[in-house]
Amino acid sequence: MISTADIRDATTVVLAAFGALFFLVGTIGLLRLPDFYARTHAATKCDTVGAGSLLIALAVFNGLDASTGKIIALAGLVLLSSPTTGHALARAAHRTGLAPWHAEKGRTP
């Protein structure tokens, strides 16, 4: 028999695996992409989705109680702060004169 607990566990596993996969992609992007701006793409987007999906998975597992509110607040915090830190750092890089990498010139900064 499939109980509600089984459905809850299955949802948690699927969402958490999805999030962990995106964390892995973010890490590979951070190590592999050619320059800072491209790395910021990988870092902001993949980490937002990875952390968001993992935290929602944990909230689903936890069920309805006071801790779940905190986990949802954490997910919201990550969703809001991750693009903002991306902006702040990209602006700092741009204003200190870091030039982006171009494919045709093939040079690394």
């Binding site: 999030g19 964390f23 973010g26 890490t27 951070l30 800072f36 790395r39 910021t40 870092a43 980490d47 952390a51 993992l54 935290l55 944990l58 986990i71 954490l74 990550v78 991750s82 830190t85 750092l89 700092a92 890089a93 870091l98 900064p109």
Partner: peptide, 21 residues
């Protein structure tokens, strides 16, 4: 570059946050 270091530390911080939960 320095911004790369800051970005990497920020990413590590996000992962640590999830590990704490």
């Amino acid at each position: 570059t320095v911004v790369d270091c800051i970005l990497a530390v920020n990413i590590i911080g996000t992962k640590t946050l999830v590990v704490l939960v």
